[in-house]
């Protein structure tokens, strides 16, 4: 069976596209899926760092496009998860080094060998974005509960529609339940209400994500953390499982002591 190409994009930078790609790739590999993650942010390579694979890169996507390396040579294998492979972006070039047709060809070439091909899109609405979505069967839009991120997500949703892509699904990242409770932050429902696309998952704002990124070990490897479980649940949803949303409310003193509410 041929694999599914999923692009992760957002419009605005810094909302967590790369972290989401790394974590979903890891979570899918933990579910015994064959996964290729592709860094489409040429010139601003980062997916390798989040995955802890930065020292293992020999060739990159531009080397493949320009014929200096075969696709199989450029793919970096993750020792922790044999089924997870990374196709790194070039760091010394820019977005114009690859065009949408070439990117779609790479996705097609990866399709027979993997169950999932996750493409990490650069921020913005220019060529890098168009490269990233060119081979996509489906698109995941990542946003945070902030005005600017939601506005940019709305713009991206419009552009995806104009590009005749299937309706994207949404991940709301960095939600702070305590702020929502105090009416100081847009809720997931508020964001869904204005963007009007299906919700794929919610990731709580969690310091552990920063710590995990420092280590180069995605938080999705650890079910101890709420954010890790949230990514694992999204991976299961991508496999077609019905998984209810996590209860993100902070547990009170007694709940923590007695371990309720898991």
């Amino acid at each position: 069976m041929s694999g599914q190409v999923i692009t992760i994009t957002s419009g605005k930078g810094g909302v967590g596209k790369t972290t989401t790609t790394a974590n979903l790739g890891t979570a899918l590999a933990m579910l015994d899926q064959r996964v290729a993650v592709l860094d489409a942010d040429i010139g601003l390579r980062n997916l390798d760092l989040v995955l802890g694979l930065e020292n293992r890169i020999v060739y990159d996507v531009v080397d493949v496009v320009e014929g200096r390396a075969r696709l199989a040579q450029a793919l970096v294998r993750d020792k922790r998860f044999p089924e997870l492979h990374l196709l790194p972006a070039a760091q010394t070039r820019d977005k114009s080094a690859v065009n949408p047709r070439q990117m779609a060809q790479i996705c097609e070439a990866l399709r027979p060998r993997y169950d999932f091909i996750l493409v990490d899109s650069p921020a913005g609405i220019e060529q890098g974005f168009h490269n990233a979505i060119s081979g996509a069967d489906r698109v995941i839009v990542v946003t945070t509960p902030e005005l600017s991120a939601v506005r940019d997500a709305d713009r991206i949703i419009g552009l995806l529609e104009a590009a005749d892509k299937q309706q994207p699904s949404l991940i709301v990242n960095r939600i702070k339940p305590s702020m929502v409770k105090r009416q100081e932050m847009l809720s997931v429902e508020d964001v869904l209400d204005v963007l009007a696309i299906p919700l794929l998952g919610v990731i709580p704002d969690d310091e552990q994500i920063i710590i995990a990124t420092n280590d180069g070990t995605p938080v999705a490897t650890d079910s101890k953390y709420l954010s890790g479980r949230a990514y694992q649940n999204i991976a299961r949803r991508l496999l077609g499982e019905e998984v209810p949303l996590l209860d993100l409310r902070e547990r009170g003193f007694f709940e923590r002591i007695f371990g309720f509410g898991r």
């Binding site: 506005r151 709305d154 009416q183 847009l186 508020d190 204005v194």
Partner: peptide, 19 residues
């Protein structure tokens, strides 16, 4: 008015104009 409602109202207006 709480800041969540202010944010949502402003967002709705700007998105309608954008769209």
């Amino acid at each position: 008015e709480d800041s969540r409602s202010v944010a949502k109202d402003r967002l709705k207006v700007v998105l309608v104009h954008d769209r």
